[in-house]
């Protein structure tokens, strides 16, 4: 597994966000049994991910903790020579231990400046536009896309980068949410209580769709146009929803 994609060493083996490729390699090796044996990830369409240059993967989000994000990142690492830069919610860098570990693995806080820098550096950015609303939804709403943020579309127009839609199926049943406790620990919006102490071995299906690009006539300034941004975000949302329903229809069972 080559994980040496567009790494911009800031001088000490880390990039400005704290990414360390050797730690990513180690984490990928440690996560391999989870990926191969526990969740038995079935991945298709990774050829749609560009092998170089900036790109944005957008995916649905579900499950108590971001296990789906971890599986998607592992999948990208295994199927491409790139290190995906997962964009996390603003509270993540406040979490002790998690903040340091995530930074070494390439996770970046979701500020406009951070995403802009990553795309300018030619990185592959992975965004979950539902944000916290995805994992926070009731089990009955599984695989229903929640409020879809549009910031990624603005970046895609501004930097003229392709959007690769991705669907993750299996995460919602693997670790459903039982309760949201109104405790704002370290800035998190709530304290999740899962239905099971550990994720269940539901099978994961990851599907990538063909890249979505903005209109050929779009220019840098169109990123300021709310209707153009909303239209591109909606195209990406529909693509993810389509991939998701297709995968759900193909699936023979939650654990098979």
């Amino acid at each position: 597994m080559a994980v040496t994609g567009a790494f911009h060493d800031a001088g000490y083996g880390f990039d400005v966000f704290g990414l360390s490729p050797p730690i990513v390699r180690r984490a990928a090796a440690l996560g391999a049994p989870l990926y191969e044996r526990y969740f038995r990830v079935d991945s298709r369409g990774a050829e749609h991910i560009p092998l170089e240059g900036p790109a944005i993967i957008v995916a649905n989000h579900g499950g108590v903790l971001p296990v789906d994000a971890a599986m998607l990142c592992l999948d990208v690492l295994r199927n491409t020579p790139r290190i995906p830069r997962a964009i996390a919610d603003h509270f993540v860098p406040r979490l002790p231990l998690v903040s340091a570990l995530f930074a070494r693995l390439g996770v970046v806080s979701g500020t406009a400046a951070n995403v802009r820098r990553l795309l300018e550096d030619g990185e592959l950015v992975a965004i979950w536009p539902e944000g916290v609303a995805g994992p926070a939804k009731r089990f009955g709403l599984r695989y229903e896309l929640q409020r879809w943020r549009v910031g990624f579309a603005e970046h895609a127009i501004r930097h003229r980068v392709p959007i690769i839609p991705a669907a993750i199926v299996g995460a919602e049943e693997s670790w459903p949410l039982a309760l949201r406790l109104p405790l704002r620990v370290f800035g998190s919006p709530y304290l999740p209580v899962p239905m099971s102490p550990l994720p269940l071995p539901a099978r994961y299906f990851i599907r990538y769709g063909p890249p979505i690009v903005g209109e050929p006539t779009q220019v840098y300034r169109d990123a300021e146009d709310p209707s153009a941004v909303a239209a591109l975000a909606e195209r990406a949302r529909l693509a993810v929803a389509h991939l998701m329903s297709q995968t759900l229809a193909e699936r023979h069972g939650v654990f098979r």
């Binding site: 509270f91 860098p93 970046v108 806080s109 400046a113």
Partner: peptide
């Protein structure tokens, strides 16, 4: 604060 971590730009 937590909202502006990692990369600081002049507008922060």
């Amino acid at each position: 604060p937590h909202t502006t971590t990692q990369l600081l730009v002049e507008d922060d």
